[in-house]
């Protein structure tokens, strides 16, 4: 690629990478604790994954294979543009296959396929502070983390139960890491929370606008907050994926017409395509639907 030389490798200058790398090492040493870092302006707006991009850029090397997903999909705008960005500024190999990737940058999902030791999952995080909507002052939330004072979070979950009869939080569901820090797992559906627990992969979280990096090392306890009489539960779906027939994957609703027709398909496109390639078919897969006509 001839225009590679106009940027430093992976876009960021070396001093910025050193600053981010120091923050990442501290984040790994203190699982779930938000390390402040000097987030840079990136060539994309805040809210489009600037934190995740900076973490990926600081970690990425020429031997890596990068996968980028947005809500589980490899082919949505955010995923396509970030993947193209790193192809351009780092000339790195890219893939859509979860198993082939060494680094997976994600917005709001954890892949369905079990991650392996050595893989790195980089989350794009909008609001890293799980207590922020309960207490707007950073000075106070910092003190609450220091004192391990998380009663307010339990009150919030309790109010859910009082109002709705069950814990109504469905995404960004708070977790406790290694029995110490309460952490926001980023707006992943709570369906994905159990995948964080004892994951063999290293999980890094970058929040660009809020200037925080945090991490969960491999094989670390990640427990979703709950109550004895209202245990944590994940979402379930009444029907399997309409394309690959998978049961037990996280499904997105896709509107089909203006008469209320819709279908539910896997949000993880690689998982769904992989199953279809292996011959699994759902009710609305192209060939099943043709055969039915």
């Amino acid at each position: 690629m001839t225009d590679l030389a106009t940027y430093n490798f992976a876009y960021l200058d070396e001093q910025t990478k050193r600053m981010i790398r120091r923050a990442i090492l501290k984040a790994i040493a203190i699982p779930g604790y938000q390390v402040p870092f000097a987030s840079r302006e990136m060539p994309m707006p805040y809210g489009w994954g600037t934190g995740g991009v900076q973490v990926t850029a600081a970690v990425l090397g020429p031997d890596d294979t990068l996968k980028v997903i947005d809500q589980g999909a490899d082919d949505t705008t955010n995923a396509v543009s970030i993947r193209a960005f790193f192809q351009k500024v780092a000339n790195v190999r890219v893939t859509t296959k979860t198993a082939d990737a060494t680094i997976i940058q994600t917005r709001h999902r954890i892949p369905e396929a079990q991650l392996q030791a050595g893989q790195i999952l980089v989350y794009q995080v909008p609001i890293p502070e799980p207590l922020r909507f309960l207490e707007p002052r950073e000075t106070e939330t910092r003190k609450m983390h220091a004192l391990e004072e998380y009663g307010l979070m339990h009150v919030k979950l309790y109010e859910d139960i009082a109002r709705h009869g069950h814990i109504a939080t469905t995404y960004a569901y708070p977790v406790k890491v290694e029995g110490r820090y309460v952490m926001d797992p980023s707006p992943t559906p709570k369906f994905d929370n159990p995948k964080m627990h004892m994951s063999p992969a290293l999980q890094l979280f970058g929040a660009g606008r809020e200037k925080r990096i945090y991490a969960v090392p491999p094989y670390t306890e990640v427990v979703s907050l709950d109550f004895e009489d209202h245990p944590f539960e994940i979402q379930t779906f009444s029907q399997p994926c309409a394309l690959c027939g998978a049961k037990g994957s996280y499904l997105d609703e896709v509107i089909l017409d203006d008469k209320g027709g819709s279908m539910f398909v896997c949000s993880d496109t690689d998982f769904c395509e992989d199953r279809q390639a292996k011959g699994h078919r759902g009710a609305l897969a192209a060939d099943t639907a043709e055969a039915a006509e």
Binding site: E14, G61, P217
Partner: peptide, 19 residues
């Protein structure tokens, strides 16, 4: 090679710190 050598050493450090 200040860029790629630093990346190599950092990945070793990150790998060690995470494991």
């Amino acid at each position: 090679d200040s860029v790629l050598n630093a990346q190599t050493v950092f990945r070793a450090l990150m790998d060690a710190m995470a494991n």
